[in-house]
Each structure stands twice: as structure tokens, then as C-alpha cells.
């Protein structure tokens, strides 16, 4: 474990807590893409299948349980509990255009042709594009609540910090995973536009309004 990965995991944890608090306090899921949250639930489910077969540490196991659990709670909030506030008219990204190519790529490009490894690879590739429905929704609605912007900033920062973690691990541990690094770069690049808006606008108290 290194500081970059620890801060990255905490940033990821914070993002999920911000989202859940926003939903619970405002009793609303307005502006949140249910499709992205479904993709995240798929990401965690396919990545943490080794939850019961390989034990790394208490931290690792507890974080995995937390991520899987909260991802399903979030989907439940959107599609059941706070359904009346779900803005399905603006959450129209065709996720099949993500899942099919990502599934095919995971099948072709992976470290080992085994079920667990292919599912892990699928999860890594899917996570890199899972935020697209959410970013698409923000661009369609033309704006995002500031709390949603904080959620996206924390979520985008987590993988950016993982890039630093991989640089650190490459130099100090000789650890290198090309698939995770390439997907992590794609994932972080997708946030760049948002990062710019967040830093130039939200931090000055303005609301984000992506070009609709």
C-alpha cells in the first residue's frame, strides 16, 4: 500500500458517501445517471468475485464489501426508493454500446484466458467508460448540482491517484499491469473536461453548465 493508492481509495469512498448522502438528505436522485450506477454495480460485481476465494487484508475485503454493497443500494435508490425523482428522460445513453465492445475486448485482450481473469479485465475496461452516461446526462441537462460535481470530482480523482500509485509501484516494486494502466488513463482522460470546469467554476461558487 502507498499513499497514492490510500488517498485514491479514500477519494473513491468519499465519492460514494457524497452520492448516498445527497440522495438520502435531498430524498432525490435528480441529475444522477442510473445507467452509470448500474455499470458501477456490474464493475464491482465482476471485479470482486475473488472476495471469498482470496484474502488479501481486512482493509481489502472490507472495502470490497462496502463498494459492492453501496453500489446496489445506489441502484435501489434510483430505480425503487426515489424512483419518482429519477430523470430517465435525460438518462438516455445507450449502455449496450459500451458493454458489448468492452466485453469483446476483454475476451480478446487479457492477461490469461480464464473466467475470473476475463471478468476482471471486463471490469477494468468497463470502469474506464462507466461514467459516460453520467457525463452525457450532465451535458444534456446542461448543468449539475454542486453536490453532484463534488461526487464526480472525487470519483475522477480516485483513478487519477491510482495512476500515481502505478508509477510508484513500477519504480519501487517493479509492479506493472498494462491493462489497468491503459484503462486508468482512458478513465482519467474522460474526466479532464469536467476537472477543468470543476476547478474553474465550482471552486468559485458557480454551478457547472456543460455546453448542452
Amino acid at each position: 500500500m502507498n499513499i497514492f493508492r490510500l488517498v485514491g481509495d479514500m477519494s473513491h469512498l468519499l465519492a460514494i458517501i457524497i452520492l448516498l448522502m445527497k440522495m438520502w438528505k435531498s430524498r432525490s436522485v435528480a441529475g444522477i445517471s442510473g445507467k452509470s450506477q448500474i455499470l458501477f454495480a456490474i464493475v464491482f460485481t465482476t471485479r470482486y468475485l475473488d472476495l471469498f476465494t482470496s484474502f488479501v487484508s481486512i482493509y481489502n475485503t472490507s472495502m470490497k464489501v462496502f463498494f459492492i454493497g453501496t453500489s446496489y443500494v445506489t441502484v435501489y435508490f434510483i430505480y425503487q426508493h426515489f424512483k419518482p425523482t429519477y430523470d430517465s428522460n435525460h438518462d438516455t445513453f445507450r449502455v449496450e454500446f459500451l458493454i458489448v465492445p468492452v466485453g469483446g475486448l476483454a475476451f480478446l485482450v487479457n492477461h490469461e484466458f480464464s473466467l475470473l481473469e476475463i471478468l476482471w479485465t471486463f471490469s477494468i475496461y468497463l470502469e474506464s467508460v462507466a461514467i459516460l452516461p453520467q457525463l452525457f446526462m450532465v451535458s444534456k441537462t446542461g448543468e449539475a448540482e454542486s453536490i453532484t460535481s463534488h461526487y464526480l470530482f472525487a470519483l475522477g480523482s480516485y483513478r487519477a491517484l491510482y495512476l500515481l500509485n502505478w508509477i510508484y509501484r513500477y519504480y519501487f516494486e517493479g509492479f506493472f499491469d498494462l491493462i489497468a494502466v491503459v484503462a486508468g488513463c482512458v478513465q482519467t482522460i474522460l474526466y479532464c473536461d469536467f476537472f477543468y470546469l470543476y476547478i474553474t467554476k465550482v471552486l468559485k461558487g458557480k454551478k457547472i453548465s456543460l455546453p448542452a
Binding site: 473513491h12 488479501v56 490469461e112 481473469e117 509492479f175 499491469d177
Partner: peptide, 10 residues
């Protein structure tokens, strides 16, 4: 590149 490297990352 040892594939069976333990997946210790989240």
C-alpha cells in the same frame, strides 16, 4: 509478467 500476481488492488 506473472499473471498470477496477486490482485491486491481494489
Amino acid at each position: 509478467h506473472n499473471v498470477t500476481m496477486r490482485k491486491d488492488e481494489l
